[in-house]
Design a protein around this nucleic acid. Structure first.
Lengths: 346, 346
DNA sequence: TTGTATGCGTTATCAA
DNA sequence: TTGATAACGCATACAA
């Protein structure tokens, strides 16, 4: 016997064929939906019925092997604990569904499978071992991209310098809009609460803030970095607030960090926005959960997913997808106001 | 020619064999890591080198077909926009990795693929068509479970009545602890801001609150339902607060809803916790992002994922996994205090 | 209208 | 120590 595995209880198309008294190819034809004019309606109906009765479900591995395609793409995201990526998924899944594709999500997080037992780590087996046609990688560092082999990849929110087709946000526009808004309110002394991650989007945000403030007569910028959580952001914001001449506005790289900035302000008896203006970035749920509601930059996450999937589809068909940065939108809410001390007159 | 598809540029083990001047089975042995004592070290090294040089990656579909197993399980979650499920994933992925399994996430959300083009909707092809060994379904309604065919399933947070092995939280204990905490503070008039979803966990929460309040001398309970978002929760809480005799404590089914309750209170000039106590459930990020920080019930999400994966592994090996509800923990923070008006003395 | 034969790329058995 | 060979389940070209 050369059959090493326990024969799974699942019926095969052969079983269906046998039970229905037809050949396996007929079953394949019928269940594949391409029997019209090739199989008699009566036979087709019979086959369909036996398949249902037996609870037949095609073996995906066999089908994939035969077809050479899985109509499945992998969405790789840096984390699942940020609601942002849920929206990216929804956008991508919608477009995918329209083309008969499925999407699975693969968050590297901290727990990568080691590959099938018995294989040395670092072997080609160590990468996600699902059968997929392509990959959409969102907001990853460049180095995280290694190991995808020859699989077609579209990168999201990873900057124009990426080694693959990419869809980006116009984050620079967003930061410029933030600074302009704050400047119009009268602010000149800014603090940038930055994310301490080596990803394009945060670097771009940082540079845009620096440039915009530098271009502002009398503008001065201070900066502190932290990780994307409330406590770390509170500390970073606190450092800025404790300077001899503190900023009158805190520009945060992320909405959650803005919540931390609120806390730093409150701990120092500062009112937001009366004594300190605060802005966020992303416009996720938390922006309207905190009080006062946050002035922030809305990132069209769903659209990012849509465009990313479209680009990948294009790529899979041999095209060379071209994309433009997605426009972002400043959402002014209640966390920004004129500074309490008059700005220095020039 | 019976090869309908474009031969993908990817090298096969045959290519490697040819290039290395050995047979395909030798390549398989070497790359499979089981060549010790069966292939000469020199040959093994040569094969390994050619494989690397050619960038060989094994075809997952073929391997899956041959092995009859994919060492991949599907984690099905109701949504990806709630950070809770990110933690569930991490837990499951950790356990999976230890056993050489991978996990992909499948959020049904609103965008299901329609199945390969040409197949009638509702056919067996309409389900997630990846090749997987098992399914972990978290916090789903019972009906969403249909269509999984004969694939082994473990359900998470879906109640003991589920038609499959299940891992649950002791949510009733959590709600009892909340009511006890509030009662000890002196509260007697409670409002339950409930989630308007037909999932076990919310039903259990509602019943536990009702029972606990009923068991409390002088306890009265009011109730309003809404969806899991700030605005809806604010409205629901507002309805409770506008009663002729409003509650002195609002028990929310979810942390995000508690944020909405804060807003309803603030809109009515009520101080939290001075005039109104508020509690949440889940203990996700937002609980410490809002002010005052939220008294809530911590759900060990990661552990849920771990236990779920362990149970599935057990199931896949033919076992009958037994699990106990996971203990939850009341986390007292700053949103609860004695009621401002003395409780009615009995 | 239906059945037979073939191959997808891999792993495992067996013979050399 | 190595190579030929079969089989996994399916979709298709082709023959009947």
């Amino acid at each position: 016997m050369s059959d090493p595995r326990a024969r799974n209880g699942r019926p095969t198309s052969r079983d269906v064929a046998q039970d229905a008294g037809v050949s396996q190819s007929t079953v394949s034809l019928v269940l594949g939906g391409k029997w019209h004019g090739r199989v008699s309606p009566a036979t087709a109906r019979a086959v369909q019925e036996t398949a249902d009765r037996l609870g037949y479900r095609p073996n995906a591995a066999a089908r994939n092997l035969r077809l050479g395609t899985t109509r499945t793409v992998l969405l790789v995201v840096p984390t699942l604990t940020a609601p942002f990526f849920g929206s990216v998924y929804i956008g991508a899944a919608r477009v995918a569904a329209r083309h008969g594709f499925g999407i699975v999500v693969y968050p590297p997080d901290d727990a990568r499978p080691a590959g099938p037992a018995g294989n040395p780590a670092g072997s080609p087996f160590a990468v996600p071992h699902e059968a997929i046609d392509g990959i959409i990688a969102s907001s990853m560092t460049q180095q995280a991209l290694s190991g995808f082999g020859g699989t077609p990849v579209v990168m999201l929110d990873s900057g124009p310098a990426a080694a693959a087709p990419t869809v980006d946000f116009a984050v620079e526009d967003g930061m410029r809009a933030v600074v302009a808004h704050l400047a119009a309110l009268g602010h000149r002394r800014f603090g940038h609460v930055a994310v301490d991650l080596d990803e394009w989007t945060f670097q771009a945000r940082g540079e845009a803030v620096a440039d915009a403030v530098a271009a502002l007569p009398g503008g001065v910028l201070d900066r502190a970095a932290g990780s994307i959580d409330v406590t770390s952001a509170k500390e970073a914001a606190g450092r800025l607030l404790d300077r001899p001449v503190p900023p009158t506005a805190l520009i945060c790289d992320d909405d959650l960090m803005a919540a931390g900035a609120y806390k730093a302000a409150r701990a120092r008896g500062l009112d937001v926005p009366g004594d300190l203006s605060v802005t966020g970035f992303d416009d996720v749920q938390v922006a309207v959960a905190i009080e006062p509601e946050l002035t922030t930059v809305r990132l069209p996450a769903r659209e990012l997913g849509e465009q990313g999937m479209s680009a990948l589809l294009d790529l899979l068909e041999g095209g060379r997808p071209e994309t433009r940065p997605l426009p972002v939108e400043l959402v002014v809410r209640a966390s920004t106001a004129p500074p309490s001390t008059a700005p220095p007159r020039t």
